[in-house]
């Protein structure tokens, strides 16, 4: 029996492959081992996926023992593959856990920014409201100023004692202001035109048209001339009182456009007049319609 044992043992050893020396290195197992070592040294994986890491370690141990017992390369490859995948699973679970922790932090950060955004919007709204209040106040002040100007104008117009007609304001200078049959103004005329001069100075955009009229006594030609000369005389007076000549036009109409009955002395006196038409704010005076 003894003499047979050795060769028989040798035969049996050869049958059970490679029981003589250490197992041959298996690349898949080496890779799995390296991957595990890296993961086990990664603090992020250790703290975030400890259970998965432990499962990877168990799978690696199983692969190592299969390899040590020389159960065949295919089997070792299989268990090494399992171990390597378990390491990868641990990595992914660590990523997931770390991200979930980060979600909490970032969610809080976002909430703070939301509050900040609301505050900024409230500030902006307040600024807009303040600007709107200023605009409204300016508009109100402007409306007040316009009203004051309108009131002042009305007062000035009142001073003029002018009549408002379709052509505008008309100031009438009567016959008594002229020397009889002449175109010279009596001294008192200046006082009559004082209010008009003040008005024209304070309202520089306004112009005047001075129109002269006579009664029907005498020739048309003579009356036309007289009425023109009387209108010119009023113009000269206004210029002397400081109004620019470019703002004053004159026209004599003679006997035309009577306002009273030329058959009575009173009517004739009324017709002997000078009318001063004041333009509107853009300086125009509508033509006299026949």
């Amino acid at each position: 029996m003894h003499r047979l044992a050795q060769p028989l043992t040798l035969f049996l050893c050869l049958l059970i492959a490679g029981c003589g020396g250490p197992p041959r290195a298996n690349p898949a197992l080496t890779d799995a081992r390296e991957a595990y070592t890296t993961a086990a040294n990664d603090a992020k994986i250790v703290s975030n996926a400890p259970v998965a890491l432990q499962e990877a370690e168990e799978a690696l141990r199983r692969a190592v023992s299969v390899w040590e017992e020389k159960e065949g390369a295919d089997k070792v490859n299989h268990y090494a593959y399992i171990a390597h995948q378990r390491v990868r699973i641990a990595e992914e679970k660590a990523n997931q856990r770390a991200a979930e922790k980060e979600i909490e932090t970032v969610r809080n950060e976002r909430q703070a920014v939301v509050l900040e955004a609301r505050a900024a919007e409230a500030e902006a709204a307040e600024r807009r409201a303040a600007a709107e209040r200023m605009r409204a106040e300016a508009a109100r002040a402007e409306a007040e100023a316009a009203l004051a100007r309108a009131n002042e104008l009305a007062a000035q117009v009142n001073e003029l004692e002018a009549e408002l007609t379709k052509r505008g304001l008309v100031l009438t200078l009567g016959d008594v202001l002229f020397d009889t049959g002449q175109a010279t103004l009596k001294p008192g005329a200046e006082r009559t035109t004082e209010a008009l001069v003040t008005f024209l100075i304070e309202n520089p955009e306004r112009n005047v048209m001075i129109e002269g009229f006579t009664d029907s006594v005498g020739s048309e030609e003579m009356n036309l001339g007289l009425s023109q000369r009387r209108a010119d005389a009023v113009r000269t007076s206004l210029i002397e009182q400081g109004i620019a000549g470019t703002r004053i036009r004159t026209q004599g109409y003679g006997e035309a456009y009577p306002v009273a009955d030329n058959g009575t002395p009173a009517g004739r006196q009324q017709n002997r007049r000078v009318e001063i038409v004041i333009s509107d704010v853009d300086g125009t005076i509508p033509a006299r319609t026949p």
């Binding site: 593959y81 995948q85 992914e92 679970k93 997931q96 991200a99």
Partner: peptide
């Protein structure tokens, strides 16, 4: 084990996408 890895990858991708979405909304704000 492959299916478990696929699931782990999907879950971590979802979580990381959620973080990115929150970060993006912070940028917009």
């Amino acid at each position: 084990v492959d299916a478990e890895l696929a699931e782990a990858k999907a879950r971590s991708a979802t979580a990381m996408a959620a973080v990115e979405e929150l970060r993006e909304s912070i940028r917009v704000l």
